[in-house]
Amino acid sequence: METTEFEPKIVAFLCNWCTYTGADLAGTSRIQYPPNVRIIRLMCSGSVDPTYVLKALLDGADGVLIGGCHPGDCHYQSGNYKARRRIIALKEILKQAGMEEDRVWLRWISASEGQRFADTVRKMTEFLKEKGPNPMKREWAV
C-alpha cells in the first residue's frame, strides 16, 4: 500500500530465571504481543554489560529491554540490584552524551508474569513507534 508503518527493533536481554521464563509463560498462555522483540538469553540481568546495550543501540536497535527478577528474587542473590545500578549509570551517561536514554528499559518481570511480559513488549513497541527510529546509529556512522 502507501507507506509502511515504522516497526521498531527491540533487543531484549532477559535473565534465565525470571523474565525469560515469564516470556515462556506468555507463550504457553498464548498471550499475543508485537513481534518486534528479539530475545537474548543471559543467566542474570546482572551480567548485562553496558557495552551490549550500547552496541545494540549503535548498531541500530530502536530499543533495548533488560528483564530481571523482582528485587529480592534474584537467583544469584543480588544480580538484579547490580543491573539496576549499572543501567541507571548507563542511562545517565547516554543522557549526558545527548542520546535518548528512554530507549533503554529495565523491568522486573517474574516467571509467573507472562501477561506483564507481553504488556511490557506491547507498551515498549508502542512507545518506540511514537518516538520513531533510533537516530544514534546514523550519528555514530558519520
Binding site: C44, S47, D49, K55, A56, A61
Partner: peptide
Amino acid sequence: CGACAVTCPSKAIQVRHFRPDQILAQVDVL
C-alpha cells in the same frame, strides 16, 4: 551469574558459554 565478567575492567574474567563475543555476535545479527 556473570557479575564478575561485567565488573572486570580488563575483561579478563569471562563466563564460558556467555562470553562477550558470543553475546555480541547475537546482537550483531539481530
